[in-house]
Design a protein around this nucleic acid. Structure first.
Lengths: 203, 203, 203, 203
DNA sequence: CATGAATGAGGATTCATTCAT
DNA sequence: GATGAATGAATCCTCATTCAT
């Protein structure tokens, strides 16, 4: 046990407990949705009594919000990775294959959709989403801009936003596609995406 | 009152009442979500008692399903329109502006997202969605194919699916973008979409 | 159409309609019980709208009561038949076989049980039952008495009631037995009843 | 508080609560019938919230079933008592007086009738009833057989069933008699039963 | 006479939340 | 800290009953 942990052992414990709940919530939310998952279900998955959860979260909405927050941070980290690449533009094109494959696991995209539809109704969630999206966009924008300069491509500020919004839309739309079309042909999608990405990123 | 109405006044009335409920449901579902909207809320919006709704729908799920079905048919009609154009490919590119503008009214896209997340958990809704998507894809595919032939473009069957899935993903993703980024710049998106569509449709 | 019918054609019609409802009720009550059978179910079986039933019966309870009344009258008629026999005592013993066989059709005895348990809760039904039972007992008692005199058996007034109550209890209990023991052996029951009846009636 | 209670305080509490509910149910079912008694009524009688009852019983049917089960066990215990008597046959005849007196308290026999009529419609209850009846019959049969051997009476296997079914029918029928004829003369019934029992048991 | 659309009260059940232990 | 017993409001749904047509 290191010093930092020793200094605030209870805060440490609190963080562990909160994570326990959020992990359990991830499982339950994925299985039953935000509103379908009962506190009882979550508490059982968290290995903790239902009442005790209220020591760490004010109410169920707070769990949902914390859970969404956590997810946002995960996505933000992916952007940081991209920024560190040598040639991010080429990376994006090259990685279409694996990104598409990931996006097509429907199991993985139930939760984002749950979040999206919750945000339409819950202003707190919407604020979280807007904020995270703004940060992610800024990161993505910076990456695109510097990469275009490095490659000697035009840096058309207005169009830059269009390029990145389109790319993000494609990936977010792909999650929806995976749900709607269970027989979605991965190779075909990759080919289609490559056509579009080439136009969007390399010209 | 015309002849058709006179002949089946009760069936007519039933249809009117069902529509009344579905319209009310659209409103309530958009405001509160499928599960957040209570039958009492819907019945009040529909101007009829809660109990009476059950004369037109077996249960709440049946309302959701009918509502989804109705939405599907609206989308299907759009495809039929497209097929009737002289040059559907050019039409798609030309109409990017208005389609994007429509897609960006967040009010309009709350419900589809609600449907998507419901489908992840409700097999009946998922089946409706899959079926509708299959039909829509087939229509879209036929349109693209004949339009490409007419234009003398390569009819690469495998890639054709990729092209259309990418386009659908872009529009479905755009709904998500509109929710995530309330300041979304319409002109920029249109420009981005035009780049991608040109690559996907006209080459 | 005879005179009596012509004089009160509407009362005639009313009686027919009431009977229609009661017959339908018999079917529904047997299938679903008094409280399980809905007015909608009954009205469908009666081939008449639910609302219209209220022109013939004040409410559902009135249907139940009329139905019970009808059943009571049927039982009473059986007693009259018995009184007309040459040697009612011997008849009762001889008919054990067919009476037991009848009593063992569980389908037939659902309704009496329904009536019994309703009477425990519904004073109006209880009054009907008490009244019918009193009449039936009196008839039965008179039959037994005169038959015993004719046969030269002792006419022990106090014991006479015991004899007849016991016999009635046996048949009413047999209905319960038929429900409890679906494998009830008819021949065995007949033999058992014959032992008891011989002691009760012929000594 | 003894050791057993201390070891499983929660299981103990659960049993107490279940009993609380069943006792309340007995009261409400008797007053209003199985379907007439609402969960609210039962919960008030049990001194606990309606929602809390669902921690002890899956649903209302489970309460009915547990209640029926409880009643069955009471009857089964009576059979065990009988088996322990020196001369069960003579005991049965001697105890006619008290058994009849018990059977004539109408308040006590409302619930069995409720159970009977429920069993006609509820397969789960019917199964419970059939099973309990089978066990009770087997016990009774063994008692009768050994007692007849001890007394040197013929052990006519087929007729044995007839004898016992007739006796059970008499007592079950007596409950119905008590409801139908509030003025039922106890002494007369005892005399009638004695005639029949003598023929059925002692010859 | 006859319909069946419409009502609204009431029922079983669930679940977020609290609190005594 | 930790439990889970307990609450009670809210939800979906049913059904006897009424009434305009």
């Amino acid at each position: 046990m290191n010093a930092a942990e020793k200094r605030h052992p209870d805060q440490e414990r609190t963080q562990i407990r909160r994570k326990q709940v959020l992990d359990a919530a991830a499982c339950c939310f994925g299985r039953s949705g935000f509103h379908g998952a009962s506190m009882a279900e979550i508490s059982k998955a968290a290995g903790m009594s239902a009442g005790h959860i209220y020591n760490y979260f004010d109410n169920k909405d707070a769990i949902i919000a914390a859970f969404v927050q956590q997810n946002m941070e995960r996505v933000s980290a992916l952007m940081v990775d991209l920024a560190l690449k040598d040639d991010p533009l080429q990376s994006l094109v090259d990685q279409i294959g694996e990104h598409v494959r990931e996006s097509m696991d429907p199991h993985l995209w139930v939760l984002p959709l749950e979040i999206f539809s919750e945000s339409a109704r819950n202003p707190k969630i919407a604020a979280l989403l807007h904020d995270a999206d703004r940060r992610t966009r800024a990161q993505f924008r910076a990456v695109l801009k510097s990469a275009r300069i490095k490659r000697g491509l035009a840096v058309d500020d207005g169009l830059l936003d269009g390029r990145l919004e389109t790319i993000i839309a494609m990936y977010q739309g792909l999650h929806v596609r995976a749900l709607h079309n269970p027989a979605l042909d991965e190779a075909a999608v990759v080919a289609g995406f490559r056509l579009a990405f080439t136009a969007l990123l390399l010209h």
